[in-house]
Design a protein around this nucleic acid. Structure first.
Length: 410
DNA sequence: AATCCACAGGAAGATTAGGATA
DNA sequence: TATCCTAATCTTCCTGTGGATT
């Protein structure tokens, strides 16, 4: 019995606790977020006096610790409340998962309702009914509740936010304050001004970590996640450096370290090598690249395919650079063959810029003087890889043998 | 200095698709 | 189910521009 499964459980050489490197893990110490923690704590401390804390809006890019800090402070607050015998509740909900008004209200309400029989079903009730039930339940529970809405920009419609922003006037016994978390800096711009001023009483911005800070974070986690001596300091510094270049996203840094270690484990190694990190990085990069290409709209795929095809043809016949106009000709011919309506040059330049921003291609604006201004377009990645990814699309696979030079003059 | 190429990219309006609503 | 709304996509029309050429 033991032997049967032992064969499939790899010998533990690397990990002590892999969970620590997962995005969901929240450590007890959050390095370099002391200021944010302090500010958040000072605002929400009002709850311990039985006052309603100001509503807070938290901005920051992904992997800057918004969620971790908020959850951590929330947990501590609830703990402190318990200690002081004050009724303080902390409630967290991710709006990317529950994105409807009904869903959010139902979740909050059920948080107050302990008895199963009285819980609100996940569908069926009129939304207003859920709201009044929520008020009732909250009043019954009393105390101060802090509701955290993570990825608040994902909520459909702003009715919910309006309701929540004035929920306190509907409550007699309980007090509610809201923490909104968003990685979209422009989110409030198109919000009802009343909601905006109410939710934005306090706002915080989480800035990305730099390489030094990421190093500290990785060091702390590595100590818990790995057995001793698995990841050396240079390896950790390398991971931190790579992630710092990519917007200082701590989640990415942890992913990189974790995948590197997984590769090392698969090689039966006892330590993570630089080669493991490089491999992991290209694997992550490849995944992202594949995902981006797969989800491209059809027209963008056609344009990308035109670039691949044209570049190949150019390499054979010519060694000039691919320009917008030439690309458009190829694209146009390709569309004809694929029996798809082609877009106007104006739209195509826009799509080229989008592909450029996605990092799939590079489009550099140059001037050829008398011969105009154009963009030099080049594929940013391996053409064969891109080609095979594009062939998954049926429209593209229908024209995969397309050769531009049969209908172009050089 | 003036010209002019071959586009870039802004503005505004039209079209379309998908989702909500009655 | 039909219809209505909205956001995204796309078109039309436009002005702007760096620098080789005249």
């Amino acid at each position: 019995m033991q032997d049967l499964f032992n064969r499939f459980i790899p010998e533990k050489r690397i990990f002590r606790n892999r969970e620590v490197l997962m995005p969901s893990y929240i450590p007890t110490k959050l390095p370099h977020r002391e200021k944010e923690i302090d500010l958040l704590a000072s605002v929400s401390a009002a709850a311990l006096q039985g006052e309603t804390p100001s509503n807070i809006f938290i901005y920051g890019k992904t992997g800057t610790g918004k969620t971790a800090v908020t959850k951590w402070v929330g947990k501590e607050l609830a703990k402190a409340g318990n200690h002081l015998d004050k009724s303080v509740h902390f409630f967290y909900i991710n709006c990317a998962i529950v994105d409807t008004k009904y869903g959010v209200l139902q979740n909050i309400a059920n948080h107050f309702i302990s008895q199963w029989s009285e819980r609100i079903p996940f569908t069926g009730w009129p939304t207003e009914e859920v709201y009044s039930k929520l008020l009732e339940a909250a009043d019954k529970a009393g105390g101060v509740t802090i509701i955290t809405l993570d990825e608040i920009d994902k909520i459909k419609g702003d009715e919910l936010l309006y309701n929540l922003s004035r929920i306190n006037s509907d409550l007699t016994n309980a007090k509610v304050s809201v923490i909104g978390i968003s990685n979209d800096l422009k989110f409030t711009e198109f919000l009802d001004p009343r909601v905006k001023s109410s939710l934005g009483e306090q706002s915080m911005i989480f800035s990305p970590y730099n390489a030094e800070q990421l190093k500290d974070i990785l060091e702390q986690r590595a100590q818990m996640a790995f057995k001793d001596g698995v990841a050396s300091l240079p390896i950790i510094t390398l991971c931190a450096g790579i992630a710092a270049q990519e917007h200082g996203d701590a989640r990415k840094a942890l992913d990189l370290l974790r995948i590197s270690a997984e590769l090392a484990e698969r090689e039966q190694s006892n330590t993570v090598s630089e080669a493991n990190v490089r491999r992991a990085q290209s694997e992550i990069e490849m995944d992202r690249f594949a995902e981006v290409i797969r989800t491209l709209p059809m027209q963008s795929k056609l344009i990308l395919f035109s670039i691949i095809v044209a570049e190949e043809a150019w390499r054979v016949h010519h060694s000039g650079k691919l320009t917008t106009g030439e690309l458009y000709n190829v694209y146009n011919a390709l569309c004809k063959k694929a029996k798809v309506n082609s877009l106007t040059p104006r739209r195509v330049t826009e799509l080229i810029s989008e592909l450029d921003m996605l990092g799939i291609i590079t489009a550099k604006l140059i001037s050829k003087g008398r011969y105009g201004r154009t963009k030099e377009i080049r594929l940013g990645t391996d053409p064969e890889k891109a080609r095979s990814l594009l062939s998954e699309d049926e429209v593209i696979s229908g024209v995969k043998d397309f050769k531009p030079y049969t209908q172009l003059h050089f």
